[in-house]
């Protein structure tokens, strides 16, 4: 069980890093590598998208290897993260559309918020139960 779980964890790590790498290539490639070639850009975006799907499957496989307490910890963290993302994300968007903030609301800020929130929630929940 532990070996299978470790294998799933390494698979998720590998898919996550390759997703980040393909995201970087799709973002900076058109400007710095292939000079805005449309077909190459579309290919890079497609590869990144497919990689993202595989990353999600790897995450689900790891989740299925969790035991009942770990599932509870992660489910509670996911629920909290989802709720906070919707509320904070829409408030952030409102701040932008009503011009209460000087800069444009970027989706990357929300992704960063999701990651940090999930990490904090998992840490707090783990401390609560263990």
């Amino acid at each position: 069980m532990k070996t299978a779980r470790k294998k799933n964890l390494y698979q998720l790590a590998a898919w996550t890093w390759s997703w980040v790498a393909t995201m970087a290539i799709a973002t900076f490639g058109p400007k710095y590598i292939w000079d805005d070639h449309t077909i190459l850009t579309a290919l890079a975006v497609s590869v990144n998208f497919a990689n993202g799907i595989l990353m999600i499957i790897a995450n689900r496989n790891l989740f299925n290897k969790f035991d009942e307490l770990e599932r509870k910890i992660h489910l509670e963290s996911l629920a909290l993260t989802l709720g906070l993302t919707v509320v904070v994300g829409l408030s952030y968007s409102l701040l932008d559309t009503t011009n209460l903030i000087a800069y444009t609301a970027e989706i990357s800020n929300l992704v960063l918020f999701i990651g940090v929130t999930y990490l904090i929630c998992v840490t707090i929940n783990t401390r609560r139960y263990v």
């Binding site: 035991d67 009942e68 307490l69 770990e70 509870k72 783990t126 609560r128 139960y129 263990v130």
Partner: peptide, 22 residues
């Protein structure tokens, strides 16, 4: 039992109720 050590610890400390199969 097929769970993590942390789960056994949480059950012993009565912070977590195990599932029926466990």
């Amino acid at each position: 039992i097929g769970v993590s050590r942390q789960t056994i610890n949480a059950i012993e400390k009565e912070k977590f109720d195990p599932s029926l199969p466990t």
